[in-house]
């Protein structure tokens, strides 16, 4: 168990180090949410006035947790690319022929994804706050929002990893990042109160983990959160992350068997 943890740590450090050495990637992953936050926030600042849009504050207040959730999705969708590059470079074979714990090869990239999500989320909260957004739920609200974002990111990262291991092509990973993420976002309340949307979108969003994360974050950031509404959604996110994580370990075994 301790070996598993330390091996997982070595692989996480390796990935974080790569991120720090290539700060341009970090900056790109942060530019996008900041553009969302500032431009989208301006462009749609009046949507809060639509009847049925339930918000006590400004649209920026509403949008900030939505952008946190979206950003977690956008970056975790690329997670499988790490496996693809390692396969192409021979790093994968090098690791698999060493006594590295197999579980660490799954958990290492997820831990790295969690680190990335924390950094991104904190930056978004700071930028949102500077732009005028306020979060009555305070520190607890912010921490719980980041937890929700991490759970969602883990689920999508595992999915992306599983596809990378099964299909072994950059295209499949790019496909997930491009094709899956946007519909998931727009079928949720990430940028728009779903109650002003057509009924079918409302129905779909009930089953959409992205909506669970966005809604739970928004509730927990409000002045007087209804914890029941927050916790069942977090529980749902955890369940999805565990199931997809399990699928990714199956995919890892399939990858090894096909070698």
């Amino acid at each position: 168990m301790t070996t598993m943890v330390s091996h997982s740590g070595y692989l996480t450090v390796r990935a974080v180090r790569a991120l720090v050495r290539q700060p341009v990637f970090l900056i790109i992953t942060l530019m996008q949410p900041i553009i969302w936050l500032l431009l989208f926030g301006q462009l749609f600042s009046k949507v809060v006035e639509i009847p049925g849009f339930e918000s006590t504050g400004s649209y920026l207040d509403y949008l900030t947790p939505g952008v946190v959730v979206m950003t977690a999705l956008f970056s975790s969708g690329w997670s499988g690319m790490g496996f693809i590059l390692d396969m192409e470079r021979g790093v994968m074979d090098r690791l698999l022929s060493s006594p590295v714990r197999r579980g660490a090869m799954i958990s290492g990239p997820l831990a790295y994804q969690a680190v990335t999500t924390v950094i991104q989320s904190v930056v978004i909260f700071v930028v949102g706050w500077l732009a005028g957004a306020r979060f009555p739920g305070g520190l607890v609200g912010i921490v719980v929002t980041i937890v929700a974002a991490i759970l969602l990111a883990s689920a999508l990262a595992s999915f992306s990893n599983a596809l990378a291991l099964l299909l072994r092509s950059q295209e499949s990973v790019i496909g997930v990042a491009q094709l899956l993420v946007l519909p998931l976002v727009f079928l949720s309340s990430a940028v728009m109160d779903i109650r002003v949307a057509p009924e079918w979108i409302q129905t779909v969003s009930t089953y959409n983990p992205v909506d669970w994360a966005a809604t739970a974050s928004r509730i927990v950031l409000s002045a007087d959160p209804d914890w029941y509404e927050v916790l069942w959604r977090l529980g749902g996110l955890l369940a999805v992350a565990v199931v997809v994580g399990w699928l990714a370990t199956r995919a890892f075994r399939t990858y090894q068997r096909a070698a």
Binding site: R14, A18, R89, G90, V91, S97, S98
Partner: peptide, 18 residues
């Protein structure tokens, strides 16, 4: 076996960023 062997494969296996 993995503890007892060293492996140098055809495709490098070096992490280029490190």
């Amino acid at each position: 076996v993995r503890r007892a062997i060293g492996v140098v494969t055809q495709r490098s296996g070096v992490d280029p960023v490190a």
